[in-house]
Structure formats: structure tokens, C-alpha cells
């Protein structure tokens, strides 16, 4: 039954990129993001897009990235059309639309290659407070679980004759009550059980728990980091001043 929530689950894919330290991927993602922001000509956006696409291909996430981009494509088309209507010319409109897609994909590069575990480590590295990190972790962990609950509730109520897509606006809103009430109640039950389970495993015993996973830059990570910066600085220079 987990198929429904599968879009929300992180899928572990392996490649050279995923084996890098998540901080390296974060910085790669940031660099791409900056490049995307300042890509204001056809050549620049082509180079940026090609870089993103090749990184996506190397890290085996191209398919998933394409799927997430599909959603933003609607906005991209809108941007294209509006600019066209405002007489910006075909090329410029196209560049602007592509730039939007580049911005989206450059950020999703990090999230699609980084497991929640690694994300947590990165958050710790940024010294965010433990409670905030844990709240984030449980939220991500339980979103699919709550979605499953929601679907089961909908099935149960539809089996009792509830017709969600029938009636006028007011009736439709009213139809949501039999779904929302059990959803809230089961979320409350779940969270109190969760709280009990956390307590009995000594949560809160310390503000600074040790961590099974620690981030460590290997020589390979350092190499990729330095190489990417060496490439990035002149590119920025060229993007801003040369063409």
C-alpha cells in the first residue's frame, strides 16, 4: 500500500555523486543555483543546463528530476508566454523560462541525492538546535505514514456512502469533515505514541546526543570540492563580464 506515498519517499540511488560528502553536494548545488541565477543569455543558460543535466545523469537521478520538473514546467511555459506577449523576443523569453527550470533543478539536485539521514547530519553541522532537527526528521519520516492514514480514512468513509466529488461547493467542504476529523485524531494518537516511544529511549537525556553518523571529508571529497571551486570562479567571471 505504500505505493501511494512513494513520491514522498526518498529513494536511495547509488553513484559517485551520492558517495560524496553531503556538504560537497550542497556546495555543488549552491554553485549551480548561482550560475542559474545569472544565466541571462542563450549561451550561458545552455552551459548551465548542460552542467545540471550531466550531473543528474551521473548521479542516476535524471528520471526523477524530470518528473519533479514537469510540475514546474507549467510555470516555465507561463513565464515564456508572458514575456513573449510583453515583446521580449523569442530568445529572451526562452532564456527566462529555462532559467526558471535551471533554478528549480539545481536545488532539487541536492534534495534528490541526499538522504534524510545525511540532511540531518548537515543540519547538525550547521549547529541547528537538536529539537528542531528532530522535529524535521519526524515530520519527513511520518508524512508518508499520515498520507497512508488519509487514504485509508477516505476508503472507509466512501465505503459508508460518502461521495466526495458530489454536490455544490458548500456540500463538498462539509464532505471533508468525515475525513479530516479521523485524520487529526489518528495523528494525535500517533504522535502521543511516538512521544512515549521517544521517552523510553532516553530522548531528551542530553541536549547534545552523540551521533552514529558523522560527516568526514575524504581526500576524494576535498578534491571534488577544490576542483569545483576552481572551475566555478572563472565561470562566474566569464558569465558576469565576458559574454
Amino acid at each position: 500500500m505504500y505505493w501511494v506515498a512513494s513520491g514522498f519517499l526518498f529513494q536511495r540511488v547509488d553513484s559517485i555523486i551520492q558517495r560524496l560528502d553531503p556538504r560537497v553536494r550542497l556546495s555543488l548545488s549552491l554553485m549551480l543555483f548561482i550560475l542559474a541565477l545569472i544565466s541571462d543569455s542563450a549561451i550561458k543558460i545552455t552551459i548551465t543546463m548542460l552542467t545540471i543535466i550531466s550531473l543528474a545523469l551521473i548521479s542516476n537521478i535524471a528520471k526523477r528530476m524530470a518528473r519533479t520538473t514537469l510540475f514546474s514546467a507549467t510555470f516555465a511555459i507561463l513565464i515564456f508566454l508572458i514575456n513573449l506577449l510583453l515583446d521580449y523576443g523569442l530568445i529572451t523569453s526562452l532564456v527566462l523560462a529555462l532559467r526558471f527550470i535551471a533554478i528549480i533543478t539545481s536545488t532539487s539536485f541536492f534534495f534528490l541525492t541526499t538522504s534524510p539521514d545525511e540532511l540531518e547530519c548537515v543540519m547538525k553541522w550547521f549547529r541547528l538546535p537538536q529539537d528542531i532537527i528532530f522535529a524535521f526528521v519526524t515530520a519527513v519520516r511520518f508524512v508518508p505514514v499520515l498520507m497512508m492514514d488519509a487514504l485509508q480514512i477516505m476508503d472507509a468513509q466512501r465505503s459508508r456512502g460518502l461521495e466526495l466529488d458530489k454536490g455544490r461547493f458548500y456540500k463538498r467542504i462539509k464532505n471533508l469533515i468525515p475525513i479530516l476529523v479521523p485524520l487529526v485524531i489518528s495523528a494525535v494518537i500517533r504522535s502521543s505514541e511516538l512521544a512515549e516511544a521517544m521517552e523510553v529511549r532516553a530522548y531528551g537525556a542530553t541536549k547534545k546526543p552523540t551521533s552514529l553518523y558523522v560527516l568526514k571529508m575524504s581526500n576524494k571529497d576535498k578534491f571534488v570540492m577544490i576542483m569545483s571551486i576552481i572551475l566555478f570562479i572563472p565561470t562566474i567571471y566569464l558569465y558576469l563580464f565576458a559574454c
Binding site: D149, Q152, I153, D155, A156, Q157, R158, S159, R160, G161, L162, E163, I177, P178, V181, P182, I185, S186, I189
Partner: peptide, 22 residues
């Protein structure tokens, strides 16, 4: 047929009461 039409004949009671009582 719609779910409602069929449910008139076929009553399903799902596992978790908390998923339906409201």
C-alpha cells in the same frame, strides 16, 4: 457503478475504528 451504489449492497468494516469514527 459508483462506490456509494455498491456499498449499499457491500458493507466493509475496516480494521482501525479510529480511521472512521468522527
Amino acid at each position: 457503478a459508483s462506490v456509494a451504489q455498491l456499498s449499499r449492497k457491500v458493507g466493509i468494516v475496516f480494521q482501525n475504528p479510529d480511521h472512521q469514527l468522527f
